[in-house]
Design a binder for these strands. Structure first.
Lengths: 127, 127
DNA sequence: CTTTATCTACGAAAAAATTCGTAGTAAATA
DNA sequence: TATTTACTACGAATTTTTTCGTAGATAAAG
């Protein structure tokens, strides 16, 4: 069964948890509210919902809860990317890559990194 | 002024119009309903809304309307990709490319195409 | 002990996106 | 001409996502 796609807000919270590691609502809210207007109980509610959905686990720590992401950043990105390639690029990962490289101002070092990845893909075409 | 991001449903309709060219609601609905359950008036309403938003233009053709996408597939993909890199990959186009290449089973020819693109980017680092 | 601060839980409003029914109209058909 | 068919327009119900206020509980501070 495929995970349900996290909403944009849920993704914001996941980012904080991935970055900070296990965190309280207070901590997550503090970080998010630096870049955007968000009430404390809004963050709380979101995290409660994410907990219900199985996206986060939590442990009691004194009178507050410490939340932990139950999905990894990598798995989530893989999943979101798959969907995105499907909906926005009609399934063509190649087109997406070309577009992404075209848009981005990648440094020579980064371009080199991609070359090396391509070489590895050539050598190991088998899954 | 930034375009507003098309919703998932709107994107589906845009795909049909990009593929078929100018089309009536009937034609769009026929195609969409092959892969998903969607009422005729739902498609109609969506296209009317998209017309109001300036995403589509339309001309009367007999007693029906022929709709045309006012945004190109390329521009839309560029815009969606920018947002997506931001929200899902925290702005790192490189990570997205690496992930996309890793997931996809690209053919040697496609890998070669990407190499050539990288070469062009090397040679023309100036915007 | 009383007040204040800090939590969670919960309900529900608000906003955004999706869906469809009904009405009205005009063309096509019987 | 009467009926059926194929459209659009429009209002509104539904669903999903986001947001927050209020209540209750417990710890900390006065």
């Amino acid at each position: 069964m495929a995970l349900s796609k996290p909403t944009d807000s849920e993704l914001e919270i996941l980012h904080v948890l991935w970055e900070r590691g296990p965190s309280t609502v207070r901590q997550v809210h503090e970080q998010l509210s630096q870049t955007r207007d968000l009430g404390y109980t809004t963050a709380l509610k979101l995290m409660q919902i994410m907990h219900e959905k199985g996206l986060l686990s939590r442990t009691e720590e004194g009178r507050s809860h410490v939340y932990i992401a139950l999905v990894t950043e990598e798995a989530t990105q893989r999943d979101l990317l798959d969907r995105f390639v499907g909906t926005a690029f009609r399934g063509s990962a190649l087109k997406l890559v070309v577009q992404a490289l075209g848009n981005s101002k990648a440094s020579p070092a980064e371009l080199e990194e991609i070359r090396q990845l391509l070489d590895r893909l050539d050598q190991a075409p088998e899954k």
